[in-house]
């Protein structure tokens, strides 16, 4: 994957496949020298056996073939960048993934288009409660899809073009504000 935002999109597909109703994404550009993101979901979780084997590319829950590359990809990317991947999971409770990359490592992928990732997730999963926190230094942007849905009412959701156009512009604006404020300090 060329962007960390694409890994995030891929990993959240796992949360959705695990029937998550709520996903929390935390992205921190600089956590003591590491670029860190965490995804925490309330999906069905994994048992200890699956959790132990999940980094093996030949372990997957998919039905089309016996290879799953999502977790091995992100594990490889973090390790190549002097970081780590931690997965905690409990059946019936949910899964938390933490990916850390040495921020200034040459092999760390760029964050990429986080706004596009968030928009694609919300348009195709309008029922999901998706909470995003994007942090850089002391600057922070928080977004909760439930707050937006409450403003829109029951009949209108993220699949309406006017709503997803607004969402894209809003996310881009808020993310770049956090970046610019941090870089100005």
């Amino acid at each position: 994957m060329r962007e960390i935002a694409l890994h995030i999109l891929d990993l959240i597909q796992n949360s959705i496949a695990a029937s998550a109703k709520k996903v929390f994404l935390d992205v921190n550009e600089d956590e003591e020298g590491y670029f860190v993101f965490r995804i925490c979901d309330d999906g069905k979780g994994m048992n200890a056996d699956l959790l132990q084997k999940i980094r093996d590319p030949f372990v997957t829950t998919r039905l089309t073939r016996d290879v799953g590359l999502g977790i091995p990809f992100i594990a490889m990317s973090t390790e190549q960048s002097g970081g780590h991947l931690t997965i905690r999971s409990k059946e019936g409770v949910g899964t938390t993934i933490e990916a850390a990359f040495l921020r200034d490592h040459l092999d760390r992928p760029p964050l990429g288009d986080l706004a596009a990732t968030i928009r694609v997730i919300l348009v195709t999963n309008p029922e999901l409660q998706f909470i995003v926190r994007y942090r850089y230094g002391n600057n922070c942007f928080e977004f909760d899809s439930l707050a937006v849905k409450e403003m829109l009412g029951d009949e209108i959701d993220f699949s309406f073009p006017e709503v997803y156009l607004w969402l894209d512009a809003y996310l881009k604006q808020e993310i770049s504000k956090v970046r610019n404020d941090q870089e100005a300090t």
Binding site: L9, D10, Q13, R62, F73, V120, T124
Partner: peptide, 19 residues
């Protein structure tokens, strides 16, 4: 398609263009 392979191949950009 939004599997790992699809995303690596550019599915997000195609979906963004569709939207």
């Amino acid at each position: 398609g939004m599997g790992t392979c699809c995303i690596a191949a550019g599915a997000r950009e195609v979906m963004s263009a569709v939207l």
